[in-house]
Amino acid sequence: AVSDRLIGRKSVVMEAISPQNSGLVKVDGETWRATSGTVLDVGEEVSVKAIEGVKLVVEKLE
C-alpha cells in the first residue's frame, strides 16, 4: 500500500503534537495528521512509526 512506504520515513512537525491532540507533519512534501505519545514542537524531526486509519503515529528522532 502507498501508506506502507511512509513507515520509517523522516518527517518534520508542522503543527505541534501532544498525547491529547493530534498535529500535522510533512512527509515527502505531503502533509499528514499525526499523533504521538509525547509532546512534539513545530520544526522537530520525527520518524513515522505506524499508521492508524488516516493518521500517522510518529516519535522524535534520537
Rank of each mutant, 00 (worst) to 15 (best):
A1H: 13
S3M: 14
S3R: 12
S3Y: 13
S3W: 13
S3D: 09
S3I: 12
D4R: 10
D4P: 08
R5K: 10
L6D: 05
I7W: 04
I7E: 03
G8Q: 03
G8E: 04
R9D: 07
R9I: 08
R9C: 12
K10H: 12
S11F: 08
S11K: 02
V12K: 06
V12D: 04
V12S: 05
V13Q: 01
V13N: 02
V13K: 00
V13G: 01
V13E: 02
V13A: 02
M14V: 15
M14G: 02
M14C: 11
M14K: 05
M14Y: 10
M14W: 08
E15A: 12
E15G: 05
E15M: 12
A16Y: 08
A16W: 10
A16S: 09
I17V: 06
S18K: 06
S18M: 06
Q20D: 11
Q20W: 14
Q20I: 09
Q20P: 15
Q20K: 10
N21G: 09
N21M: 12
N21I: 12
S22H: 09
S22K: 03
S22N: 09
G23L: 03
L24S: 10
V25L: 03
V25E: 00
V25T: 02
V27H: 02
V27K: 01
V27N: 02
V27T: 03
V27R: 00
D28F: 07
D28P: 01
G29H: 07
G29D: 08
E30C: 12
E30V: 12
W32G: 01
R33H: 11
R33Q: 14
R33F: 10
A34E: 02
A34C: 03
A34S: 03
T35L: 07
S36C: 06
G37F: 13
G37T: 14
T38P: 01
V39L: 10
V39F: 15
V39Y: 15
V39H: 14
L40V: 07
D41P: 08
D41R: 13
D41S: 12
D41W: 11
V42W: 05
V42S: 04
V42Q: 07
V42L: 06
V42T: 05
V42G: 01
V42R: 06
G43Y: 04
G43T: 01
G43E: 03
E45Q: 10
E45P: 06
V46P: 04
V46W: 00
V46I: 04
V46R: 03
V46M: 01
V46Q: 03
V46L: 00
V46H: 00
S47W: 15
S47D: 06
S47L: 15
S47Q: 14
V48M: 00
V48R: 00
K49S: 08
K49D: 03
K49L: 13
A50N: 06
A50R: 10
I51Q: 06
I51S: 03
E52K: 09
G53V: 03
G53N: 05
G53A: 03
V54E: 15
K55D: 08
L56Q: 01
L56G: 00
L56N: 00
V57Q: 05
V58R: 00
V58L: 03
E59V: 11
E59R: 04
E59M: 09
E59P: 00
K60R: 14
L61I: 13
L61T: 09
L61M: 10
L61P: 07
